[in-house]
Each structure stands twice: as C-alpha cells, then as structure tokens.
C-alpha cells in the first residue's frame, strides 16, 4: 500500500503552504491591476491623441499583458496551482498552450476576411462607411427601462 496517499497526509503536506497574508497580497495585486486598467481605459477617452489608432493598439497590448498577469495570480495563488507538483501544473498548462494557436489563427482569419471583403465587395465597404442617423439621446423611454 505504499503508493496510496491518504487524504489526511495530503492535507498535512499542504497545511504549511497555506498563508492568509499571501492571499491578501494577491487580492491587492489584482485590485491594483484592475484600477490601472480602468485609469488607462478612461484616460484614453479623455485625452485626444494625434494618432488614436496606434495608441489604441499599444493600449490593447498593455491590457492583454495585465489580463494575463491577473489570470496568473488567480490560478497560481487562489487556485493554488503554483504550489502543486510540477507534473500537475504541466498537464494543465500544456493543453492551454493551444489557445495561442487558436487566438492567432482565428483573429488572422477574421482580419483577412475583412480585407478580402472590402477589396472585392465595394458595396459593402461603401455601406459600412455610411453614417447612421443620429438618434435623440434616450428621449423616448421604452417600457421596462430602469434608471
């Protein structure tokens, strides 16, 4: 029965790694990152840039990195994966790598579809440039609306 690991023993092994201080530290990190994201998002709308498209692209890159940082802290600390055996970490992390290909391939495809369509379907391009009729801002309340 040597390879049987009882639940009590597993718990004993884990007890040393449980630390309330580390949890609150993780919480603060998550909070700070979220606040930074918000400040960036709001200031982008408040400040007028000479090259808004470039700024938006850079900003999106920053958002992706901050999001991944948040995800890392949630998985490693809250879900405790950072303290498990490396084998377990890898059985989770390696399949998750598929996302890199998924995201890359599908966004590339979407972008390519847009370019092809704009090139070969001029009517679609013209139509997507037409301005929508400007509506009065919430003049008529629809039933069921809550303020």
């Amino acid at each position: 029965m040597e390879n049987v690991h009882t639940v009590e023993e597993m718990q004993q092994a884990e007890e040393h790694s449980f630390d309330t201080k580390a949890i609150w530290k993780t919480f603060r990190i998550l909070l700070y990152i979220t606040v930074v994201e918000l400040i960036l998002a709001i200031s982008y709308y408040e400040i007028t840039f000479s090259n808004p498209h470039l700024v938006k692209h850079v900003l999106n890159g920053v958002f992706i990195m901050l999001t991944l940082a948040k995800a890392f802290f949630i998985i490693a600390e809250f879900m405790h994966l950072g303290h498990e055996l490396r084998n377990l970490i890898l059985t989770i992390a390696i399949p998750a790598m598929l996302f890199l290909w998924f995201i890359g391939a599908f966004l590339w495809d979407g972008n390519s579809f847009k370019n092809l369509r704009n090139n070969y379907d001029r009517q679609h391009l013209e139509q997507s440039k037409e301005k929508a009729p400007v509506k009065e801002e919430h003049e008529s309340k629809k039933p069921g609306s809550i303020e």
């Binding site: 040597e2 390879n3 690991h5 023993e9 597993m10 004993q12 092994a13 498990e84 055996l85 084998n87």
Partner: peptide, 27 residues
C-alpha cells in the same frame, strides 16, 4: 509508509500518487 513532498523532489518518480492531490480535485 508514504513520503511527503520536499522542495527538491518536484517531479514525480513513481511509488506514490503521481500528483499528490485527491482524485476529485484532479478531475
């Protein structure tokens, strides 16, 4: 007889539950 994990043994080397977690948690 069972071993607890120590810092220098981060890889599974047989002889015990491979991931050191309970079945339900792994699933």
């Amino acid at each position: 007889m069972s071993q607890t994990i120590t810092a220098d043994r981060k890889w599974w080397s047989g002889g015990r539950s491979p991931f050191n977690v309970e079945y339900g948690k792994l699933m």
